[in-house]
Write a protein that binds this DNA or RNA. Sequence first.
DNA 1: ACCAATCCTTGATACAGATCAACCGTGAAC
DNA 2: GTTCACGGTTGATCTGTATCAAGGATTGGT
Lengths: 250, 250
Amino acid sequence: MNVVTETPQFNSQDCGNCPIRHRAVCSRCETNELERLEEIKYYRSFEAGQTVIWSGDRMEFVGSVVSGIASLTQTMEDGRTQMVGLLLPSDFVGRPGRELAAYDVVATTDLVMCCFRRKPFESLMEQTPHLAQRLLEMTLDELDAAREWMLVLGRKTAREKIASLLSIIARRDASLKLHADRQIMVFDLPLTREAMADYLGLTLETVSRQMSALKRDGVIQLKGKRHVTVPDFARLMNEAGDDSDGGMAV
Amino acid sequence: MNVVTETPQFNSQDCGNCPIRHRAVCSRCETNELERLEEIKYYRSFEAGQTVIWSGDRMEFVGSVVSGIASLTQTMEDGRTQMVGLLLPSDFVGRPGRELAAYDVVATTDLVMCCFRRKPFESLMEQTPHLAQRLLEMTLDELDAAREWMLVLGRKTAREKIASLLSIIARRDASLKLHADRQIMVFDLPLTREAMADYLGLTLETVSRQMSALKRDGVIQLKGKRHVTVPDFARLMNEAGDDSDGGMAV
DNA sequence: ACCAATCCTTGATACAGATCAACCGTGAAC
DNA sequence: GTTCACGGTTGATCTGTATCAAGGATTGGT
C-alpha cells in the first residue's frame, strides 16, 4: 500500500469526474444513499511510477481515476509483461465481489484516485440498482476497449500498433485545433517507450524506431521525447489501419 | 438473419443452462417477472459455419449459448481477422443498450441459442435489479478472459499460444480422467486450424506446425485432426507458460 | 469409381521485429 | 564540475513466424 497522501484535497463538488458519484447524483437517488456514498469515499494520491496495488493483494477499495494515468499490467514468471488496460480519468478500478487483485495497477503519471471502501460499496450496490447498471455500462465499454485491443495485438504491424496507441491517447487527451480541413491534435505522451512497448506487445527498441519512422514520414511531430503534434488526425487513423471516420465500435 | 429453425425444441426446464433464466429463477423474482422473461424468450438454431449476426446489423435480441460454440470476430478492411471471443455454452451474447452489433458472431459448430427480444429485456432489466447485477458479474468475467487473452496475443510464442488455447478448451469441455497422479483430458477441437489461427493471431500454417510439434513432443495425442488427448494437463499448462496450478485470475 | 471441395500438413524462403550492443542527452546527487 | 542513472536512439545481426507453394486425407456429389 504505497499511499503518499490521503489528504482530501477535493471537496464533493470536485468529484464530478468520478462516474460513480456523478451518476449517483441523480433523480433516482435517495438522499441517504448519496450520503452513504460520501461516507465511504476517500482520495488517494500516488506519484508517477508507484504501484497502486499488486496482483494478489487484497482489494480494500474500488474507485475511479480523478486525474493522471494508471496502467493495468500482467506479468509472467519469466518477466514478460503485458499491459492489459490504460486507466484514464473517469475509468473505474476494481471489481465488486473480488477479494484479490488480478493485475498490478501502476501510476504512470502522478495520480489521484477517488476510492470507496469495497465492502460498504458492495452493500450499497445491492440496495441501489442504478449503481449496478452504471457499472455494467462502464464494464461493457471496457470490454469493447479490450476487444479492440485484441485486434491491435493479434493482427496489426508495429507501425499500426504505434499509430493505434497514439490515436487512442489523442482522442482522450489532446487539445484539438481545426486547421483548414484537418484536425490538428497536440498532447503529451504519458508513457515511456517501455510502457508503450508493454501495451503494444513490442520491444522498446521497436517502439523507438517506429516513432522515428512516423516522425520522418510527417505523420507526427515530436518536441522532446514526449510532446506530440498530430498534424492530420485522419492520416494517423489511416496509419492505424482503422476506418478514417474515427468511429469507435458502436 | 440466417435463422434455420425457430422451433421451440426445448421446454422451460431445458433452459437451466441459460444463466439469465437460471438466475431469474430465484427467491427475489416475483412471479410476473419470471413470466415476462418467458414471454420474450425464444430459441434459435444455427448450423456450423453460419453467421448469427453481422457487425453493423441491428441487434434485435440478447441471449446466451445453450449448446455448441460461437465466435466473436473483428475484421479489418484488408481482410485480416481477429477472433475476440469464444462463446461456450452459458456465455452471454449482446449488449443491452446497444443498437448495432460491433462484431460478427459466427457459429463454429452447430449452435442453439436462448434469445430474449432486446427492448423488452432492457425494460425488464430496469425493473429487476438482480438481472443487471448478474449481467455485471458475467461481463466482468468476460473482461478478465479478454485481458488474459491480451497477454496471450501480446507476449506468448506460437507454441505457448496453442497450448493456452488447448488448455482453455480442455478446462471447459473435456471429459476428465485421473490416472496415477496425472489429469488426462480428452476432447474434440471445435475449431478448424484457420479459426484457431484467427483466435491466436497466427497463420493456419503456424498452427498446424505447432500442433504437430506438440504431438511429436508428447504433450498431446491426436486421433484424426480434431480428437485431442492431453495425457498430462499440468504439462500442457506449463507449455502455455502459466502457473502449473491451473488457476484462473481471481 | 471418379471428381471436386475442404481441411490439413509440410517444405523452402522471406522478412518483421527481437536481441545484443553502443552511444546520446538530460537532470539529479555529490 | 563530474559522475551517475535513466530514458531514448540507432546499428548489426538473429530468429520466429509469415508467405508462397505443393501435395495428402477425407467427405460428399454425381
